[in-house]
Design a protein around this nucleic acid. Structure first.
Lengths: 337, 337
DNA sequence: CTCCTGGACTTAAAGGTTTTCGGAAACGTA
DNA sequence: TACGTTTCCGAAAACCTTTAAGTCCAGGAG
């Protein structure tokens, strides 16, 4: 730990100029002779001078810092968004102040105050699900962008994955493989994600004039439920030839249980998962065809729009971003696997 | 987005006092009459005044902000540490500035400069493995604490999980169950974690006077390698009755392959994993007995010691923190499962 | 010679808060 | 009345940087 930090004053003294000249030299402004600039730069290097961002921020009103307020401690959604946001900021020298509210509204309020008092230039709020959440932007002096979990207020800016479209895409993929007895297993119905994905299934099947195999099975997002649902489904609808699962965990459970009951995946039953959670999707056998929600893209987009909102104008509303179908072995056409 | 933010000046004007008095009233200082304080507080509330942390930090030299510099984009280790740190800071109103270097040294340098210019009070550096990493603390004006990946410089403060002790604990658990033919499958030998865990195995077995079943199998950390290693091991050492795996992924792969070869877990072969990565450890069948590295505790401890280092004195050196064995079905005594 | 131009540099203000120190009022005592 | 003490409050400096405005000087044009 070195001693006191050098200020621009020290640099100016060492270079034998005023602090104004030093400032101009350091910031590449014009009214400075080349020789003088060089002297200042040398002095700054010698003292390893770092401009004080607080003083700069105090003056300019811009801190080049944004807050990221998340609710999902586990980081399942927050992390990719954070990475995407960092990506978008990266070159621009932005920094991210990260707060985790852990689903607690009063802790969220607390963090919000802390961020505001630190004068962040903007805020990204990441939800723990795609269910709309209370707006936080009321009377806030900085722009806010919602990622993954949209704001209830349509006047806010929100970015969410296109669950409906992605589910339709998954089902269309199964249809293109010639499968016609398609079932759907998903998570709790109080998740908008589950309802949206079901809606996508319904649309795709309706468009193709195909009947869904059995009712949609709603449970939880776990592997255990995937196994349980598989047992029920294979009993009730033994002739199914494809299943679209609402999460990779459910899909992994389904595959395991189906195999134990003598059904081969993908030959007898093709399986599509959701999330592209790689520890599951690439490691299970067969590797899972699954929907990737492009969360990093979501984060990047949110960050870019936060930029736009900061210095220009925002585009209010809930924007849906396309997902991507990652095709792996669990839906290989017969004979290819 | 509301208009301009209220300053302490506005509060003072509204309350009809000077800014000095307003400051004292807001900060709970003594020399201000109760009635006056109340007037100031009311004015602050009416204007929803938030003190400007930049101005305060500029004056006091303390920003109540720490930087967290991580290298593992995926967040496998960084996130729990972050949570633990937030926990330790939480009440104290600290904020965390998060940067991800993504394993790139020059990006790390870049982030470091950014954090320093923002005048963070301290730094936590999270490694992507327990391999010692180059020190970053040389001539830094703020204290640094290393978590998970220790610094190469013994003068720095580092906190790492006790891999050796944890592996010994796992093996002792297997020995206590009466298992005597214990094998070890782990990750790449260039990981210190793999070597440390192997060392723990060796010690525990030596202490019990038991011979290890076969050589330690080094591969990668994946489920695929777990399956592959299982095949090799069951061929070479068919009579094994326990396996200690260097990760939950390896363990999950082993269990799957072993079952396919007709070995029952835990009746024929008891299995212990490592990491307590819950999506694997609780969801596989049987649920995995595994080592939890207590990463949140690690983060909390690192944060607490950063506090100590900030305002007092640090305790240099590499500190190992105990891990915990989480016992589940994969090591149930026969007849219990 | 004066006036102007433009370049190179300096002075000073501003940004919001905390803190030190001094001042003023009120009150009690001589 | 003069003086000391206590209580409350205000003026101003300090933190560090940027920038608008001002100064000074050399050199060119008239």
């Amino acid at each position: 730990m070195a001693g006191k930090r050098a200020t621009i004053n020290d640099v100016a003294s060492l270079a034998g100029v005023s602090i104004a000249t030093a400032s101009k030299a350091l910031n590449g402004r014009q009214d400075v002779r080349a020789a003088t600039r060089e002297r200042v730069l040398a002095a700054a290097a010698e003292l390893s001078f770092q401009p004080n961002a607080l003083a700069r921020g105090l003056l300019s009103g811009q801190t080049r810092t944004v807050g990221l307020l998340t609710s999902d401690s586990v980081g399942r959604f927050g992390i990719p968004v954070l990475l995407g946001a960092e990506d978008a900021f990266g070159a621009g020298e932005m920094a991210v102040l990260l707060c985790d509210a852990r689903g607690d509204a009063i802790r969220e309020q607390h963090h919000l105050r802390a961020l505001l008092s630190r004068r962040v230039d903007g805020l990204i709020v990441v939800g723990e699900s795609t269910n709309p959440r209370p707006s936080v932007s009321k009377d806030l002096p900085v722009p806010v962008v919602y990622a993954y979990g949209p704001s209830e207020d349509p006047g806010d800016v929100s970015f969410v994955p296109d669950d409906v479209g992605a589910a339709a895409m998954a089902v269309n993929h199964l249809l293109a493989l010639g499968r016609r007895r398609i079932a759907h297993i998903t998570g709790p119905a109080h998740y908008k994600a589950a309802r949206d994905r079901e809606e996508g299934v319904r649309r795709a099947l309706a468009e193709a004039g195909v009947e869904q195999a059995g009712q949609t099975l709603s449970g939880v997002w776990s592997q255990r439920w995937g196994r349980h649902a598989a047992e029920m489904l294979l009993m009730a609808e033994p002739e199914i030839d494809a299943v679209f699962c609402g999460s990779d965990q459910i899909a992994a459970g389904f595959v395991e249980a189906a195999r134990e009951r003598g059904r081969r995946v993908p030959d007898d039953i093709a399986v599509v998962g959701y999330d592209n959670w790689e520890v599951l999707s690439t490691e299970t056998r067969p590797a899972l065809t699954t929907v990737d929600m492009n969360l990093e893209l979501l984060g990047r987009t949110a960050a870019q729009h936060l930029f736009a909102a900061i210095d220009g104008k925002a585009t209010p509303g809930v924007h849906t971003l396309p997902c991507q179908l990652v095709i792996r072995d669990s839906t290989s056409p017969p004979g290819v696997s």
